[in-house]
Amino acid sequence: MKLPQPLVKARLERRYKRFLADVTLEETGETITAHVANPGAMTGLAMPGLTVHLSKSDNPKRKLAYSLELVELETGLVGINTAHPNRIVREALEARAIPEFAAYTSVRPEVRYGENSRIDFLLTEPGLPDCYLEVKNVHLCRNPGRAEFPDAVTARGAKHMGELAKMVEAGHRAATLYLVQRMDCETFSLAGDIDSGYAAAFAHARKSGVEMICYDCDIGKVEITVRRSLPILAGES
């Protein structure tokens, strides 16, 4: 997935009200307010003084022209825009770049299912069971080398787990793909201390046959793409 170009370098001053951040633009020294497309806690990624990279919209109707895209850590870039994972995964699915789903040629986004929900992707192929695929954005890393999800309580995420389990019971295939928007992790686990309810829903869904898959990303200032599979350390936090 191509990022908007060119990105603008800045220093993070503060993040507040979840969706707002004050940043100082490197080129001009001007302090402006940028949109943060991320409802999570952004633990370790919202510290004042961090270098960030912004996109700028030319849409005159937007209240905030700048959006926070990347945070720069000593260990590399981290993508924080939660609007991007579905686009990243869709491109990979259509290119058959994710082996677990490479047999499917039809990729339909935002299909209604369950109890008033939408699945991120419905994958279909003649002769194969329909596959209901949920995508989760991951960027929490509290222990070096280990990505974790979630970074905040997610009742919606737990609900999705239950609905995916029902799809398996109905004879379909169902999976959750955790997309790690960073390159400094080797494994993935649940943050059960942050949301024990989600951890319980994960365990139930996995036992019911829901597939749990994790991939990280190759992240640059021009493009973000799916990179490699990471092992899931279930039950650890």
Rank of each mutant, 00 (worst) to 15 (best):
H160F: 12
L3P: 08
L68R: 11
G171L: 07
A203L: 02
H35K: 07
L73V: 09
Y113S: 03
R142A: 08
K207P: 00
R108F: 01
V180T: 14
G79I: 14
V89G: 00
F19W: 12
S229H: 03
I213A: 06
A203T: 12
S196P: 10
R206M: 08
C131D: 06
Y16W: 10
S229A: 13
R108A: 12
S106M: 09
E211K: 02
A234Y: 01
S196N: 08
I98R: 01
G209N: 05
L73C: 01
G197H: 09
P48Q: 02
H160S: 02
A37F: 08
R156N: 02
V71L: 03
P109E: 05
E236F: 08
Q5S: 15
L122A: 03
L12Y: 05
R146L: 11
V111N: 04
G29H: 04
G157C: 05
S55C: 00
Y215M: 02
P144D: 08
V36K: 08
M183G: 12
D195K: 09
R62Q: 14
G79C: 05
T105I: 04
V135T: 09
Y16R: 02
K17E: 15
A175D: 11
I88Q: 04
R206I: 01
V168H: 06
E100A: 12
G192I: 12
S67N: 11
H84D: 12
T82Y: 13
H35R: 08
L50P: 00
V52M: 03
A200S: 11
L12H: 03
I119A: 04
A46S: 15
D130F: 11
V226M: 03
C131M: 09
T75S: 15
S208D: 10
G76E: 09
F188W: 13
R108H: 10
E211L: 04
P109H: 07
Y66D: 12
A92N: 04
L179D: 07
I232C: 07
A199I: 07
R182Y: 11
K61D: 14
D151Q: 05
A95S: 13
D130M: 07
K56L: 02
A34E: 09
T31R: 06
E148F: 00
D184H: 10
S117P: 01
M1I: 11
F202S: 07
G220M: 04
G162L: 01
L68N: 09
R14T: 05
G44P: 08
V23G: 06
Y113H: 12
E74D: 13
G192C: 09
L133H: 09
E26Y: 06
R227L: 06
V23H: 10
T225S: 15
Y215G: 04
L128G: 01
G127I: 11
L7I: 15
A34N: 08
L7V: 12
I119R: 00
L54P: 01
K56V: 13
A10G: 06
V107L: 04
E148L: 10
S117G: 01
F101Q: 04
K56A: 12
D58H: 08
I32M: 02
L179A: 03
G197C: 04
L140H: 10
A191D: 14
I119T: 13
A65K: 13
